[in-house]
């Protein structure tokens, strides 16, 4: 793809900052032995609430979810920052964010015990981050600025 220098700069910045956010959300959960997604899942609202609460209801499912959540966040974060396996990381990120979004959709009429730090109607920061990741996916930069430059060398050549 041919981007201008400033387009490239802002696209890489966007990718790295989202990666930073994912990575930090992951590491704070690793270092907190008390962290569990149970509270968040139990507080789910909207049409998928039953699905999420069902996950929390089962102790072994919950353990798997907590594990995937923590290490998923870290892996996605590293992928985005380093620009390695960025396509997979981006898709995984979008999936994870969509789960967060649909567990707490800011739709009119749904109330949550968990306090929100802002005011939202349908659109919230999760949704915006999700769309930003879609942009990162459609305007890839990691083969120019990232480890994918080396990982995808063969592919790069083929493309050339």
């Amino acid at each position: 793809m041919n981007y201008s220098k400033s387009q490239l700069f802002w696209l890489v910045t966007l990718r790295v900052l989202i990666g930073w956010h994912f990575l930090f959300e992951g590491v704070v959960k690793v270092v907190n032995p008390n962290w569990s997604s149970i509270g968040y899942l139990m507080d789910s609202g909207g049409f998928m609430a039953g699905f999420f609460q069902g996950m929390a209801a089962n102790q072994s499912t919950l353990q798997v979810i907590d594990f995937i959540n923590i290490w998923g966040l870290i892996a996605i974060g590293l992928g985005l920052i380093l620009g390695s396996f960025t396509r997979i990381a981006t898709i995984a990120g979008i999936l994870l964010l969509s789960l967060y979004y649909f567990s707490h959709p800011p739709f009119p009429g749904i109330k949550y015990a968990m306090p929100m730090e802002g005011s939202y109607l349908i659109v919230n920061k999760i949704l915006i981050e999700m769309v930003a990741l879609a942009v990162v996916f459609l305007f890839p930069t990691s083969r120019e600025f990232g480890l994918d430059k080396f990982i995808c060398r063969k592919q790069n050549k083929k493309v050339e």
Partner: peptide, 24 residues
């Protein structure tokens, strides 16, 4: 297939991780 400039470009995330680690 790779020059020094490319290596620097490819490793752009590493200093970011350094800043992240320091901050954390």
């Amino acid at each position: 297939g790779i020059n020094r400039r490319d290596i620097l470009k490819g490793l752009i995330g590493v200093p970011v991780l350094g800043v992240f680690a320091y901050g954390w």
